[in-house]
């Protein structure tokens, strides 16, 4: 009997969770493609919205997708690498300033980067003049900026995971004459690959969703990411008309993240919890 209440509660929450997702789905298939005609249950099925999305001469959705995925992939890989290097040092080595360093990382991250938008804007105005490929209107400048946040909560998460890997492994390898780099690349990295995957996924999703910095950086249509571009798609004048195309774009955007997410799901729970319990 008590199980029924549990099912009833969970079904309500699932309905809440699915409501907007189903709405997006049916809006994407809705042949009229306007917000006002979109219902929860699809009233028809056509791929007009997908065609409209890719053929719109004012917007280059394919290009945004490429920019976003490229930026998210590179920044995920780079930030995982930077993070695991630091986590390795914090977990395995004892050196002056270790505690201070760990605490400093936590503190600096507590001030989100975008609070410094004014300063970042001024700094990158200079950078744009000197090194245009890494300045405004380029995803590579944005990449550098994102990597500034590579050492942060994720470093703690990875340190927590590394702490669970027995130290005897390193010690026996050292006795066998392995250098610290060999231990790191050949022994530790393969062992911690689940947490690397999780952190990479979180970084990937985070970059895909980042809007604030990208909106300041990317001005021309070709360099925009999905977040900036699709926000523009629903501008004040065409909110109703473009909604179908926007919903279609949302579905396409969701495919990479949702599939990665379900593939890695069992690691995500353990990864997040270890980070929570071990810090």
């Amino acid at each position: 009997m008590r199980m029924i209440w549990r099912h009833a509660f969970l079904l309500c929450v699932v309905a809440f969770a699915l409501l907007p997702v189903v709405f997006v789905f049916s809006a994407a298939l809705n042949p009229l493609g306007t917000l006002g005609s979109s219902e929860i249950i699809p009233t028809g099925a056509s791929f007009d919205n997908f065609v409209k999305l890719f053929s719109d001469p004012d917007h280059s959705f394919g290009r945004w997708m490429f920019n976003s995925v490229m930026l998210a992939l590179v920044s995920a890989f780079a930030s995982v690498f930077l993070g695991i290097c630091a986590a390795y040092a914090f977990s395995r080595m004892r050196f002056a300033g270790r505690r201070v360093g760990l605490l400093a990382i936590m503190l600096i991250q507590m001030f989100p980067q975008f609070l410094a938008i004014v300063a970042i804007f001024i700094i990158f105005t200079q950078v744009t003049e000197l090194f245009p490929p890494f300045g405004f209107d380029s995803i590579w400048g944005l990449l550098l900026l994102y990597l500034g946040g590579a050492l942060g909560v994720n470093t703690w998460l990875m340190k927590g995971f590394l702490d669970t890997v027995p130290k005897e492994l390193d010690e026996s390898a050292t006795v066998d004459g392995a250098s610290h780099a060999q231990i790191f690349f050949r022994i530790i990295l393969p062992l911690v690959s689940p947490i690397l995957a999780v952190v990479a996924l979180l970084a990937f999703v985070g970059t895909m969703n980042e809007f604030l910095m990208a909106n300041i950086f990317l001005r021309s249509d070709d360099t925009k990411t999905l977040a900036v571009g699709m926000f523009g798609l629903l501008g004040p004048d065409n909110r109703n008309v473009n909604f179908g195309a926007f919903a279609a774009g949302t579905l396409l955007t969701a495919i990479p993240t949702v599939s990665l997410f379900y593939w890695l799901q069992k690691y995500i729970t353990s990864g997040l919890t270890l980070g929570a319990v071990k810090g």
């Binding site: 699932v14 926007f246 774009g249 997410f261």
Partner: peptide, 19 residues
């Protein structure tokens, strides 16, 4: 249940906010 409950976490947040 788990798979359905975490779905909002996997969807692109910026797009769903606009939705």
């Amino acid at each position: 249940y788990r798979a359905l409950l975490v779905l909002p976490y996997a969807m692109p947040a910026f797009a769903l906010m606009l939705v």
